[in-house]
Simulated assay, not measured.
Amino acid sequence: MTLATGVGSFPGTDQRDFDEALRVVLGELGLPFLPEVPGRGAGAAMIGRTIGLVTELDADLQPAGWRLTGTSGAPALDQRRASSLLGQDLDTLEEHAADHPGPFKVQVAGPWTLAATVERPRGDRVLADHGARRELAQALAMGVADHVADVRRRLSRTTRIVVQVDEPALPAVLAGAVPTASGFGRHRTVHPPEASETLGWVLGAVRGAGAEPWVHCCAPDAPLALVRDAGAAGLAVDLSLVGADGQDALAAALEAGDAVALGVVPSTDPAVPPTEKEVVAAVHRWLDLLGLDPAQVTEGLVLSPTCGQAGASSAWVKRSLAILSSAAASLS
C-alpha cells in the first residue's frame, strides 16, 4: 500500500501551531509524523531538536548557531530548553495518539549535517576535527536509540516506527564544499568510506532499537548508493533533483523491498498546484522510465512534499498533504 507523509517542518510560531500540525498529520496521512515548527525558536528546529537528544555532549546556543561547550555535567540552558520542548511535543503526541495503531515517523538531523553545522568549543565546525565528529556521531546514535524507546513507550500500539535521518549537508561534506567559519575556505572532503561508516553508526542504532532507518536528502547529487550501503531501509528525496546514479539507487531500493519516499509536490506555495491525477501520472511515468511494474513496487512507495514546509502557507500545507493522500490511495 502506497502511503503519504511529510518531510517534517510546518509553518507557525507557537504551541497552537504545533497542535494544529499534529492534528493535520494524524488525520490526513497514512504515515503521520512528529511535526517540527521551527518558527517557535532554535530549539524547535531540526538541529536544535537533535541537540536536545544528544545528552552525552553539552551544547549551547551562540549567535552563529549551536556550539559544543566541551564541559561535562548539566547541559546548558538552551540545550535543556530544546530537550524540554521536545518532551512537551511528545506529551501532546501521547495525549492525542496513544492508541494510534499504524506506522509513525520521527525525524532527526544526521551526523554529517550536525558536524557541518555545530561548532567545536574553540571555534569552527565539528567537521574540522576527526575525533570530534566521531564523538558527536556516537553520542547521536545513543540519543536516537533512547528517543525511539521513548516514542515506542508513548505509542504502545504502533508496530512500525520510522526514523528519518535528515542529511541535507551530506553532498557538500563529500564534495569539500562546506565553508569554514571565516567563509574564506572550505573544509576538507570526507571520503565515502568514512561517511558511510559514521552514518551507519546512527542507522544501526535506529535498527537496534527496533525502528526503521530512513535517510532524507533533498539536495542535488544526494549519494543514495552510499546511503543504502550505510544501512538505510528507506530513501527520501526530492524527485526533481535526483540524477542518473540516484535513479538507479532508487530502483534498486524498490526492487529490494525497501521504502522510497518521493518528493512530488512543491514544499512551498506553487503558482499552479498539481492535481491528484497529475501526481499519479508523474509517478507512473517515473516507474515506466525505470522499467518497474507499479503493481510490484507500490507497496514500498511513499509520497511526500519535495522538502520541509516551514516556508509554506498553512493553507498550502493542508492542501498539499490532502493531494498526496489522495494520490497515494489511487496508486494503491
Rank of each mutant, 00 (worst) to 15 (best):
M1D: 09
A4M: 02
V7I: 15
V7K: 00
V7L: 05
P11A: 10
T13L: 14
D14F: 03
D14V: 05
Q15P: 11
R16L: 14
F18Q: 01
F18Y: 13
D19E: 15
D19H: 13
E20T: 14
A21I: 02
R23L: 13
R23I: 09
L26D: 09
L26T: 10
G27K: 05
G27F: 10
G27C: 07
P32L: 08
P38C: 07
G43N: 06
G43K: 03
A45I: 03
M46D: 03
I47A: 02
T55Y: 02
D60L: 13
D60Y: 10
L61H: 04
Q62M: 14
Q62G: 07
Q62A: 14
W66D: 02
W66G: 00
G70K: 11
T71Y: 07
A74H: 11
A74Y: 04
P75W: 01
L77R: 14
Q79V: 08
R81K: 13
S83E: 12
Q88W: 13
D91E: 13
E94S: 13
E95H: 12
A97N: 10
A98R: 15
H100T: 06
K105A: 06
K105C: 07
P111N: 12
T113Q: 12
L114H: 01
A115Q: 09
T117F: 06
E119D: 15
R120L: 15
R122C: 09
D124L: 08
L127P: 07
L136F: 04
A137N: 05
A137T: 10
A139I: 11
A139Q: 11
L140M: 11
A141C: 13
A141S: 15
A145S: 14
A145D: 05
A145R: 09
D146F: 01
H147G: 04
H147V: 04
R153K: 11
T158P: 01
T159R: 15
T159L: 13
D166T: 01
E167K: 08
P168L: 08
P168T: 05
A169M: 12
V173P: 11
V173A: 11
T180R: 10
A181H: 05
R186N: 12
H187R: 12
R188H: 13
P193D: 12
G200N: 10
G200R: 01
W201L: 13
V206H: 00
R207D: 09
G208K: 03
G210V: 09
W214T: 00
V215H: 06
C217Y: 01
A219Y: 02
P220Q: 13
D221C: 04
P223Y: 05
L226A: 08
L226H: 04
R228T: 12
D229H: 10
A230D: 05
G231W: 01
A232L: 10
A236W: 00
V237Q: 01
L239C: 03
D245K: 13
D248E: 14
A249G: 06
L250D: 00
L254N: 01
V265R: 00
P266L: 04
P266V: 06
S267A: 14
S267I: 00
T268H: 11
P270F: 10
T275V: 11
E278V: 06
A281V: 07
A281E: 15
A281L: 10
H284G: 02
L290Q: 14
G291W: 06
D293E: 15
V297K: 03
E299P: 01
V302G: 00
T306C: 10
C307S: 15
A310L: 08
A312I: 04
A312G: 03
S313F: 05
A315M: 07
A315H: 14
W316Q: 07
W316C: 02
K318V: 14
R319T: 15
L324I: 02
